[in-house]
Amino acid sequence: MAKILIPTPLRQFTDGNDAVEVSGTSIGEILNSLTTSVHPSLRNNLFTPEGKLRSFVNIYVNDEDIRYLEKDATEVKSSDTISIVPSIAGGR
């Protein structure tokens, strides 16, 4: 099972765990399982009501952003680590 690292503010939705192991072969499958059956209260934080990843959410498989891989279809191996990383920018 792949390991998903949980940012501190989201651990209130994962029973305080800083990492969660979820089975699946693609990132889409794993994130869907994480936010529907494993920790459903996470879903609203990661996805819009329409089911799209929120604009500020970047998903990394190891050191690679899935936007530059195969997006939802990105293959995930059991040895992989998945990170949820906020996107931060701004200006006057």
Binding site: L5, D18, D63, I88, A89
Partner: peptide
């Protein structure tokens, strides 16, 4: 002078180190 953006790789690294 009126915009900024943080490299998400920097955020990824700090999140890992923080854990």
């Amino acid at each position: 002078s009126d915009r900024f953006e943080i490299d998400p790789h920097d955020i990824l690294r700090v999140q890992r180190e923080s854990i």
